[in-house]
Nucleic acid binder design. Sequence first.
RNA 1: GCCGGAGUAGCUCAGUUGGUUAGAGCGGGCGUUUCAUACGCGCUAGGUCAGGGGUUCGACUCCCUUCUCCGGCACCA
Length: 691
Amino acid sequence: MARFYVTTPIYYVNDVPHLGTAYSTIVTDALRRYHLLRGDSARMLTGTDEHGLKIERVAHEKGTTPQRWADETSARFRAAWPKLDIAADDFIRTTEPRHTEFVRELWKTIEAKGDLYEGEYEDWYCVGCESFKTEKELLPGNLCPIHLKPVERLKEKTFFFRLSKYEKILLELYARKPDFIAPKERRNEIISFVEGGLRDLSVSRTSFKWGIPVPGHDEHVMFVWFDALANYMSALKHGPNGEDLMAYWPKLGSDARAVHIVGKDIIRFHAVYWPAFLLAAGFTEDELPSQVYAHGFLTIDGMKMSKALRNGVDPVRLASEVGPDVLRYHLLRAIAFGQDGDFDHAALVERYNADLGKNLGNLLNRTLGLCAKYTGSKVGPGWAPTPLEDDLFAAVKIHAADAANEWDSIAPHRALEATWAIASAANQYVDRAAPWAAVKDADKERGQARVETILSTLLSLLGALSIMIWPAMPQKSAAMRKQLGLEPVEPRTGHDLFANLFALRAPGEAFSVGAPLFPVIDKDTEKALLERLVPKTDASAATDAAAAATPAAATPAAAAALSKNDAPTKPPEADPGSPMTRSLIAYDQFGAVDLRVGVVVSAERVQKKDKLLQLKVDIGEESPRSIIAGLAKTFKPEELVGKRVIVVANLAPRDFGGGFVSFGMLLATGPSEDLTLATVTGNVAPGARLK
RNA sequence: GCCGGAGUAGCUCAGUUGGUUAGAGCGGGCGUUUCAUACGCGCUAGGUCAGGGGUUCGACUCCCUUCUCCGGCACCA
């Protein structure tokens, strides 16, 4: 028996549960269940991350308090998971005292050991935005790009974490523990990131309040990630009932493993900052998480998940339609864990029919049918295995061992593949053994004994399968076992259910055949189901975002790319800010901006700059303006030609090096990979002034 | 541009340290059984293993190079 501690990321409360978070959480739960099957003492943690400026702002915009906002959103996560048959052992909120107290202790420990120091952050500051700006963000003449007013040089007090000190230590760690970061693509990325040099990390803010106060410095709140990462340990230090569960945390000589399941977008925080924080607090290398495993992103029916397009699939609704087990199975089986994957509704139905209905479901059904016919729905006494059975068991045991290995190495898709190889082998076996023929043996007794052997064999395999599917499909496992006349899977610590998977049933045990576990979905039902499930996206908005009126504008809060993951080495929040936080400008200030309608006459890529395009834009002048714009992530050069754009015509020229100088700027909105250009309706002549 | 990863049958992917006819699942096609949820089983893909060079007796598997895609970094709206 070993201890296995597995965690999901804690989810930021400016979002609600969606398919991506559901996926992380389902995988984590399946791993927890697998380890329980093995007799391990497994523990799963999930929760919500509730601090930070973003939350403070969202709450403000919604006219509520951060705490109330967090309460509501956190409750939605908490309510969602059980509906997906996720049974976390603990749900932590970063606003709980057990967490905040732990984090403050952690802070004090690190401070005492010398890796936190008070310093000053100095950079350009825009009073209008009330935030720092980096040099790069500024317009020529040190103007704020939003307010077009001069910025000031300002210092803010902040605590720094001595991250630079851990550069070498972390690289050595990665070298010594090759599995610490998985999959290996991510590992490579992290290594090259750290090799690129680590700067000390600003880990406190004075510009907002919604966070954990720094001990002894109430004007500072902690950087959200310092706060958030510690949840994995605070939840052990102070369990849900106040108990100390630190035995689950790895330690030299202990059998405890801790695995963090994360999305690939937050791997850096977990693989760089978190171990550095722990080392700084005096934990040894043996007391770091065993592994940080990053999964990929999901697309839905081939399209990116996007709030603006509203194709976010509600996992709870999906589960209520197809059943949590089916959703879980499909996610676990169809997506290669660690890689990006596509959630395809039609594929879900297809897989359901093939794997669940026709393979496993039908196997159960036909076996029980045979039992009803030949043994009175009881386990017969006959047991005389032939080479056919011996070969089958040999093969099937290998598959079971494969499945176990794959679960152990966190490859649910492969584990399930191996599991289903057993079901396939069983179906083949039925045909080969042909009990319906065997029963016609001239020697009646011999025929009956043969049939009983065959059926006992099948029952053994089905019993094994009912256990092996439990991590993915707990309810279906129970339903299956009920039909087999077995109690639901009940894992016990120290009792490895894989040890005797293929145990034979005792003669006389009875079954209770029920309705098909996985009725096959026919074409008509499928059509109706898909119609209900597949989210209606605005196709034109999806495929022609460039030309369409910006969909993001309708929901500013959602469009603002609210993420807590903004690079933390940047100054405190170079956030464009909500409309509420902007200051007002006088009419002449606006009038100072010369906005013109332009037509793109040519566009080409800028060498060595992935994001940049060099445009020639006709704004009614003798010759087209040369403008460098960061549009390359969204647009191909040729598709811009002929487009009407809005140009800031009186912007001071900016030199991009290599002979590329930009004389103006285009107006656009959205993230860099999905920009929408501002334009005008109607056939306005180039050079027309906007006012 | 730098650093990674990937490009294998219609789709999703396996292919160990280079070695006889390149694999699986799904879908499709053909055949077949009857216990079963019109389900199962068997057969079936003649695939330039992205392209081009090279090393080797021999390369999907090693080296070089080109192209495409995806990430990270850089640059940036």
